[in-house]
Computed example of a mutant assay.
Amino acid sequence: MKKSLIATTLLMVFSLPALAAEQTVTLSVPGMTCAACPITVNAALNQVDGVSSVRVRYEERDATVTFDDTKTNVEELTQATKNAGYPSSLKQSQTTQE
Rank of each mutant, 00 (worst) to 15 (best):
77 L>K: 01
63 A>S: 12
6 I>C: 00
11 L>V: 06
43 A>G: 02
50 G>F: 04
46 N>V: 06
33 T>C: 06
2 K>T: 11
31 G>R: 05
22 E>S: 04
72 T>W: 03
68 D>H: 03
52 S>C: 04
90 L>I: 08
30 P>W: 00
41 V>R: 12
7 A>N: 14
25 V>Y: 02
38 P>F: 06
51 V>K: 00
86 Y>H: 01
14 F>H: 08
22 E>F: 04
55 R>F: 04
71 K>C: 00
3 K>P: 00
45 L>D: 07
17 P>R: 02
63 A>H: 10
36 A>V: 11
24 T>R: 12
97 Q>A: 14
79 Q>K: 15
44 A>T: 03
6 I>P: 08
43 A>Q: 14
25 V>W: 00
79 Q>D: 12
4 S>W: 12
92 Q>K: 15
31 G>M: 07
27 L>C: 03
14 F>N: 01
20 A>Y: 09
45 L>V: 02
37 C>L: 11
76 E>S: 13
78 T>G: 04
44 A>F: 07
39 I>F: 09
62 D>S: 15
49 D>W: 01
89 S>F: 01
72 T>F: 03
19 L>V: 09
60 E>I: 05
81 T>C: 05
71 K>N: 09
15 S>V: 03
85 G>H: 09
4 S>Y: 12
5 L>N: 10
93 S>A: 15
93 S>G: 00
45 L>K: 02
32 M>W: 03
38 P>H: 08
94 Q>R: 13
88 S>K: 03
27 L>H: 00
81 T>G: 04
32 M>S: 04
46 N>S: 12
7 A>W: 08
21 A>R: 02
31 G>K: 07
15 S>M: 10
9 T>C: 13
9 T>E: 11
56 V>N: 00
57 R>K: 13
85 G>Y: 05
45 L>C: 06
45 L>I: 04
72 T>H: 01
42 N>T: 15
3 K>E: 14
59 E>T: 14
26 T>E: 02
76 E>I: 01
11 L>G: 14
60 E>H: 08
31 G>T: 07
71 K>R: 15
4 S>M: 13
53 S>H: 07
44 A>P: 02
53 S>I: 04
80 A>F: 09
53 S>R: 04
89 S>R: 10
19 L>A: 12
12 M>F: 13
1 M>G: 14
97 Q>R: 13
14 F>Y: 13
48 V>F: 09
25 V>F: 06
1 M>N: 11
66 T>K: 10
5 L>C: 00
19 L>T: 10
27 L>W: 03
45 L>M: 06
14 F>V: 11
53 S>N: 14
40 T>Y: 09
89 S>D: 13
66 T>S: 11
95 T>D: 06
63 A>E: 05
29 V>C: 01
62 D>E: 14
76 E>N: 14
15 S>Y: 10
31 G>H: 10
45 L>Y: 00
36 A>W: 12
63 A>M: 02
80 A>E: 07
37 C>F: 06
55 R>M: 10
35 A>H: 13
20 A>L: 11
66 T>P: 05
27 L>K: 04
57 R>C: 01
97 Q>W: 08
36 A>H: 15
39 I>Y: 09
91 K>A: 05
7 A>K: 06
6 I>K: 09
46 N>A: 10
23 Q>E: 15
42 N>R: 14
83 N>C: 05
34 C>H: 05
68 D>N: 13
44 A>I: 05
39 I>P: 00
5 L>E: 15
70 T>D: 11
88 S>H: 08
48 V>L: 05
29 V>G: 03
